[in-house]
Design a protein around this nucleic acid. Structure first.
Lengths: 125, 125
DNA sequence: AAAAAATATGAGCAAATATTCATATGAAAT
DNA sequence: ATTTCATATGAATATTTGCTCATATTTTTT
């Protein structure tokens, strides 16, 4: 009962439905899970990274190829690949001085598809 | 053949696999679709908005309730609700001076779930 | 009609982020 | 060994973005 006490002063309004607030709070996942979830979607939330993932969807590619495909700097691509690598969405293999990147997650397509379903359904109206 | 010509100068490296680049380019969705896709994920890519969506998952709530639940300003919540509204992820109904928000998309849960699957699988290692 | 309450919104600010530029690293070719 | 090429990376810059603060709007209450 006591841990449900929150800082009401932070909100410049009164609680309207204290019961709803309490029951919803009990069902909320841990702060950390929600943070991680947002972090993953943040990675997907950039056009360049989306393009890279879509490209790797079709084929394994080296950094230079991706840069040419997207008409962007090698450096910019390399920076973004690092982000994707840290999120464990892509993996790489080295062959001499060339580094080939490919998808490292079976869920990427499913996440993509759900996003696409949303925007296509939404635009139907 | 001509439209495949791109500005190679922008990339400070030579094309390594021109065939791969061309075939991948042919399979790429339109620029606009990719932009929209990134936009949707961008909406999911914020902890506050993720929390709001999770809360609305459990129950319809008014702005003030959400603010108290998340221990944040009414203004901050209202701003974020606008973003969610524009992305057509939430809808609202007015009852007097109180505005109740709720989810406006059956796909939200599926998108969430895919994201969760990714982070849980990833953390298994 | 006036005050109060819930929500919305515009401007400003601070933090985060994507790209550029210069340069480092590492492997292959000469 | 030296040069060349593919990639990585740190610093700087420009843009985006989330929150705060003040205030507007709308509905209810008195």
């Amino acid at each position: 009962m006591n841990e449900n006490k929150v800082d009401f002063e932070r909100c410049d309004c009164n609680v309207i439905h204290e019961d709803v607030v309490n029951s919803v709070r009990d069902g909320m996942p841990h702060e950390e899970s929600l943070y991680d979830l947002a972090e993953i979607f943040k990675v997907f939330g950039d056009t360049t990274r989306i393009k890279i993932l879509y490209a790797l969807f079709a084929s394994e590619m080296c950094v230079c190829d991706i840069a040419v495909l997207l008409n962007m700097t090698q450096s910019a691509i390399s920076h973004q690949l690092r982000v994707l690598k840290q999120a464990r969405l892509v993996k790489y293999r080295k062959e001499g001085k060339v580094v080939y990147y490919s998808l490292d997650d079976e869920h990427v397509k499913q996440i993509f598809d759900q996003g696409l379903i949303h925007i296509t359904e939404r635009n139907k109206i």
